[in-house]
Design a protein around this nucleic acid. Sequence first.
DNA 1: TCAGCAGCTACTCCTCTCCT
DNA 2: AGGAGAGGAGTAGCTGCTGA
Length: 262
Amino acid sequence: AIYLEYEGDKNNNKVPDLEEIGIKYLKGDGDFRSDECIELLKQADVVVTNPPFSLFREYVAQLVKYEKKFLIIGNVNAITYKEIFKLFKDNKLWLGASIHSGDREFGVPDDYPLKAAGYRIDNNGRKFIRVKGVRWYTNLDYKERHEDLILYKKYSPEEYPTYENYDAINVNKTKEIPMEFKGHMGVPITFLDKYNPDQFEVIGLGISNSGKEIGVKPYKEEHKLYRKNIQKRGAVDGDLYMITNGEVNVPYARIIIRNKRL
DNA sequence: TCAGCAGCTACTCCTCTCCT
DNA sequence: AGGAGAGGAGTAGCTGCTGA
């Protein structure tokens, strides 16, 4: 493993030339948890990187531990990780600007197996895969994070059912958050793309143990049979659920929020 | 005008691990 | 050994922009 060191423009051509970038060799394999990498981290003002998704929690924990400013790539579902969500709730972490949907293309090594759902090989033979649900995770502030989400929908009990096991209404689309509703609301995790901490308060996450922490009750006795069936799809106690058309309906992970302006 | 495609939004189900 | 828990460089459908 190597690292690069650039100490500034020495020949005044305003370009970081190869000879101005010093290549340094690490003793180990460059694992971010190794002592030598931690020493490099300590020197950093801002960390900008694309960490391994499978070690995302561990990587963020390290950045928090060393109190670093950061801008890193992660999958949108990392919002639902217990430890990561807690940082969102405490306003120590948020989604960054510019990527709020869709998929993004990543260059991969020549020997990378192209089994992704979407991929491309360019005219020079370079391989790319399309990765869905990509987001920036950051603790750097930016303007859009302080802009209000414009609300237009009116609340009606028919359109916004109440959960069976928590006192909140279910909202299926972020833009359809009712404008005059004062109580708790369950919204999709992509709400955080639009989240302005001055406009909304994040109460908690309505899944599994995180749900239990905010008081989501276990399945009612008469719904446990449904839970048994639903279990195959991964629903557990602590998950929010509602009854639609007489059947138990467990939505995807919901964030419980409250409108601070009402 | 319209096909193609990149972006927007919401959401699955299979595999691995852990526990009983 | 089998069931439950946990999470995933994920998946699908639709919209609206762009350029010919």
